[in-house]
């Protein structure tokens, strides 16, 4: 910090270390989730995709397949965004 810094306005932009931490929290949580998912998940996602594509043309980013553990059972969550 020098007197020259006083003339710059740093207050509006968050510090880059803070940005790094927030980005890391998101990516690490996402990757841990994927790691713990069953091996068949990517294949299942592909098959669901193929079935939907028989009827509606969607891209890979419009389909989300997740498995969530809830105590002693798991929930398969399929989210499809259909184009208008």
């Amino acid at each position: 910090m020098s007197i020259f810094d006083l003339f710059r306005d740093n207050s509006k932009t968050p510090k880059s270390a803070h940005v790094a931490k927030e980005r890391l929290k998101v990516i690490v949580a996402h990757e841990r989730h994927q790691r713990n998912a069953p091996d068949y998940l990517p294949a299942l996602q592909r098959d669901i995709m193929d079935v939907i594509r028989k009827y509606v043309d969607i891209g890979p980013e419009q389909l989300q397949v997740d498995i969530n553990e809830e105590g002693n059972y798991s929930i398969l969550e399929v989210n499809v965004n259909l184009p208008k």
């Binding site: 510090k15 880059s16 270390a17 803070h18 790094a20």
Partner: peptide, 17 residues
């Protein structure tokens, strides 16, 4: 660089990992 906010601090890395 941590003091300037340009580098992740130790507690940040501990929290994430």
């Amino acid at each position: 660089r941590v003091a300037r906010g340009d580098m992740l601090d130790v507690p940040d890395i501990e929290e994430i990992l």
